[in-house]
Nucleic acid binder design. Structure first.
Lengths: 244, 244
DNA sequence: ACAAATTTGTTCGTATGTATG
DNA sequence: ACATACATACGAACAAATTTG
């Protein structure tokens, strides 16, 4: 229980105990993401400690990203932020699972279109050559994290539309198409506001920005197999670049 | 002149000639960044070609990032986008100069404050230890690109406030403080909307998002010397991750 | 809240020049 | 000489987004 009496003098600082209880309440799902915490005064009273002690616990939790405090409004359980590493072996499902969340995906659209400017250039195709575009939502624990737009050269990956329709995993589809391994080459990152459809698909307010990443995946021989433009829900995602 | 008659049948496609002329007008400074181009219809009329031909030229220029086209509004000379690499040796002035732009900086604020949660953790300092905070605007060709908030451990870098007041270069200040070399360790990237002050300082519309990066710079021994939160003007900056 | 004007986006169809075999 | 493919260029009409009244 959140308000059970706190043992004192056990060598465990009160603020630590309080932080642990709140953390347990959050990770157990008793307090869901976005939920409002009791006011500091209420907590202090219920636990029979000074408000400073509560604040020290809050500081700990905000520092670890579990709680978000807004002056004058209250304290809230932080929405879960997925840390998305941008290494060369980035695989959506592995990343999500590494953070003990359940990955899933949904294909929004598959089409074959002629390659235009940027895509043709990055795939090293002539303008007008056919590419398969696949738009795909990626979820962690059922919550939309990213919206990827993949472009595969149609001549090499003729079957990929059918494969993706069957299983929305990009790496599985590439593996079944004879590319068991690939690496990410360069990612350019910027941000912009979402279109109404993007906000809708990502389940995000239209007033919150998107992170955009552009990446080229190449097979072991260095041939581009996939040009991807990914839109991340900025509030729920943090891209992590390993330095050096 | 932009509207001189176009030679036909010289083996140079009309759209190529048009694209070249527009490119010349842009790179020569005749059309400045952000300037509006004539409408497609006007250009087609002036050059006595079909609007499709103009559009083919525009496609070329947008693909190369020289022009930005907005439906219902018009076409504009693209604002220069700074490519900001996130390697471990990131130095603002070197990056800007490498793109043949003139770097400059301005210190907004220097203060000594006690380290709180995240900063203390990343700097491996005890909470409450003094840190020097320096807020600094970075410009390329006089245009604000980023707003960095640096945190230095005060005990090690006592003179840094004075040094920065004299010369706003972070790397120069660190060098003068006995750290000639440092590397960036990890960068977390996310995005959010700017506060009114941030938008003001960066000279950016409040409706355009910021890119946020969190980085730790360490000396060659791996000791943290600077924790930095950088806010990039998303419309003018593209972070580039080399995937190795 | 609505209408009109402006501007870019898309999709037809048609014709011509050029390179290839 | 002929057929074919492809890029180029033109014309017309309509759709969609934005700005203005």
């Amino acid at each position: 229980m959140l308000t059970a009496p706190l043992p004192r003098g056990d060598g465990l600082a009160l603020w630590r105990q309080i932080a642990s209880r709140l953390e347990a309440a959050i990770t157990s799902g008793q307090l869901v993401a976005g939920a409002r915490l009791p006011t500091e005064t209420d907590l202090a009273e219920a636990l029979a400690v000074n408000r400073h002690t509560i604040r020290r616990a809050m500081e700990e939790l905000t520092g670890r990203g579990l709680v978000r405090v807004e002056q004058g409004r209250g304290s809230f359980v932080a929405e879960e932020v997925v840390e998305y590493p941008l290494g060369s072996r980035t695989r959506f499902s592995e990343i999500i699972r590494a953070q003990s969340r359940e990955p899933s995906g949904r294909i929004i659209r598959i089409a074959e279109i002629p390659a235009e400017g940027r895509v043709a250039e990055l795939l090293k195709l002539r303008r007008g050559r056919a590419v398969v575009v696949a738009e795909r939502l990626g979820f962690a624990n059922g919550r939309a994290i990213l919206l990827g737009m993949h472009h595969f050269p149609a001549h090499r990956f003729a079957r990929i539309a059918a494969l993706l329709a069957d299983n929305p995993s990009i790496s599985a589809a590439l593996a079944a198409s004879g590319v068991p391994d690939y690496r990410r080459q360069i990612t350019r990152i910027t941000a912009r506001m979402p279109s109404p459809e993007e906000a809708e698909l990502l389940g995000q307010a239209r007033t919150r920005p998107l992170l955009l990443a552009e990446a080229v995946n190449t097979d072991p021989e260095g041939v581009p197999v996939d040009v991807t433009f990914t839109r991340y829900a900025a509030g729920r995602t943090q891209l992590v670049v390993e330095g050096a």
